[in-house]
Design a protein around this nucleic acid. Structure first.
Length: 525
RNA sequence: GGGACCGUGGUCAAGCUUGGUACGAUACGCGGUUUGGGUCCGCGUGAUCCCCGGUUCGAAUCCGGGCGGUCCCA
């Protein structure tokens, strides 16, 4: 069933092969009714802005409904913190995964799959790493009735699985660099607040791991990885900031960590990817040595990076979505265009034949198109349905279009209707995809800019935090100050800009000592 | 880590105070009707009322414990 959404499937067929999509529930309708009533109660004004209510004030409710309605994930799997990616969501995720994997492999990262289990002794080789993760690992202690002599963990991340193998593969400097990547699930026992796609006890990500001969090469790799990640996020139209995490918040075992933080409608910041310079920490613990050109043994240096697909998908949904549901960037939409034939008894034949002709034409042009010719539903039903799925363009064809060799296109992002001649259809569709993408990107960026603020004293910071903004402050760099800020306001220091240079404009917001950095403060997941 | 609220067909939801095996909507199936923004009608399907225990002749309802969820604060 899922396969009919995947681009590589040899015979991509129409909706008829996908019963799960036909059977869309009316849950969301109920939600909208409730909201309309609420609006009337509160304002007495029917024309008040529904989107605000849904996407912002009621983000949580909106999000839960959209996940289920648009078949992104089904969170009813009966184990806390674990959920099921369903057809539409997985199809989008696969496209994101594909973009990232392509970029990594161009960079020379070989695709690999490591085992999900890591032996206790390997996991415990790097001290900071153990300290950072031991509280949240799942243990495998038994096999059948017997207790295992050597306990295993489910990987929370794979450094300690991978480095023993790197050690075997690394004999001379000519074996370096080593670059690999894998897309896999990892397991972390999050103590409390889990949330589908944002924070689960199992999550889908891609992790890249590399080993190099010297620090400079590893530094370059950090930049390479950041560039690859940026290119994926950019194609999703996501706005984000790149922060160097403060020392107390870096990856367990890293020299330093770079993170991609993006905004969320509920005012919390969403970390969608990280890149870590691991220095010699792991290399020493795992004895990653090689023979250098002079015939002497040298220690390698490693980096790693991870992109969480759940969170990236969540960001795509929550940045672009509106009160009709998802709005997908054309590049990752499992279906980019839906054709809705308007069938009347009289000219039904003419209309459906014309619709099929346009479908073939669009398919030939490489556009992922679905013809929704299900006769059990009215056009209006179908509009709402495919809007929920976020399909970027809708093509309406009725007798009017069929007779005049025209088509009516409707943009998902702004509902604009465009009339086009059949002869110009394909070009127009490509043009509109680009416009839709640019519009989504622009809006996401505008929202980020709107959320950013500067605070020069704790009162300002506190009031901005209450507004759930992302706030720049001058910071002395001291960890104690950071901790105190966290205690005083409901946000924490996330780090300092990595992608651009920012100079402090005054003294530390808390202690008043010399400001050394501009730090970003926000609520977080 | 602390607190508040919640758990009833696939989904939403009434009933809970004042115990008597569950109102309804939507979905799903079949038939007909309709189709340029959620057609209408008929018939049918679908719930061990989250789990375990207690009180009781009798528990969705009261009590205890657990599991799960949402939100707020740290």
């Amino acid at each position: 069933m899922l396969s009919c959404f995947i681009e590589s499937f040899p015979h991509e067929e129409t909706i008829n092969c996908c019963p799960s999509l036909i059977a869309f529930p009316y849950l969301f309708k109920t939600l909208r009714h409730n909201l309309v009533e609420e609006e009337l109660d509160m304002t007495g004004n029917k024309s008040s802005n529904r989107k605000e209510l849904l996407a912002k004030d009621n983000f949580s409710e909106w999000y839960d409904n959209v996940l289920l309605e648009a078949k992104i994930v089904d969170d009813r799997y009966p184990v806390k913190g674990f959920s099921v990616y369903t057809g539409w969501g997985m199809s989008i995720a696969k496209r994101i995964i594909g973009m990232l994997e392509e970029g990594l492999e161009k960079n020379g990262n070989e695709p690999m799959q490591f085992p999900v289990v890591i032996p206790e002794d390997a996991f415990q080789k790097e001290e900071d790493h153990i300290e950072g993760f031991s509280g949240e690992v799942f243990w495998i202690t038994h096999a059948g009735e017997n207790e295992l002599e050597r306990k295993l963990i489910l990987r929370p991340t794979s450094e300690t699985a991978i480095y023993p193998m790197f050690k075997l593969w690394m004999r001379s400097h000519q074996d370096l660099p080593i670059r690999m990547h894998q897309t896999c699930n990892v397991y972390r026992y999050e103590t409390k607040a889990t949330r589908p796609l944002y924070r689960g006890r199992e999550f889908l990500w891609n992790e890249g791991h590399t080993a190099h001969v010297n620090y400079d090469d590893a530094e370059k790799e950090v930049k390479n990885a950041a560039k690859i990640y940026r290119s994926v996020y950019d194609r999703l139209g996501l706005s984000y900031i790149m922060l160097k995490r403060p020392d107390f918040d870096k990856f367990a075992g890293a020299d330093y960590s770079i993170a991609f933080d993006t905004w969320n409608p509920d005012g919390k910041v969403n970390q969608i990817g990280t890149v870590h310079q691991l220095g010699y920490n792991f290399a020493k613990a795992f004895e990653l040595t090689y023979e250098d050109p002079n015939g002497e043994q040298a220690t390698a240096i490693t980096t790693c990076y991870g992109m969480g697909f759940g969170r990236t998908l969540a960001a795509t949904i929550s940045h672009h979505g509106d009160d009709h549901g998802l709005v997908l960037p054309p590049k990752v939409a499992p279906k980019q265009l839906v054709i809705i034939p308007i069938l009347f008894k009289k000219k039904g034949e003419l209309t459906i034949n014309y619709a099929k002709r346009l479908e073939a034409k669009l398919q030939e042009a490489g556009i992922r198109v679905v013809l929704d010719d299900d006769t059990r539903f009215n056009p209006g039903d179908k509009y709402y349905k495919w809007e929920m799925y976020g399909v970027p363009l809708r093509l309406e064809v009725g007798p009017r279009e069929a007779e005049n060799k025209k088509a009516t296109l409707v943009r998902r992002d702004n509902f604009e209707k465009i009339q086009v001649e059949e002869a110009h259809l394909v070009d127009k569709v490509h043009e509109l995809f680009q416009e839709i993408f640019m519009n989504l990107k622009k809006k996401s960026k505008a929202k980020l800019d709107e959320l950013l603020a500067d605070a020069y004293n704790m009162d300002e910071l506190k009031s901005y935090m209450d507004e759930r903004r992302i706030v720049r402050v001058n910071w002395c760099g001291d960890a104690d100050c950071a901790m105190n800020i966290k205690d005083l306001v409901s946000g924490e220091i996330r780090g300092t800009r990595w992608d651009i240079e920012e100079k402090p404009t005054g003294n530390c917001i808390l202690c008043g000592d010399e400001g050394k950095y501009i730090a970003y403060v926000s609520r977080t997941y």
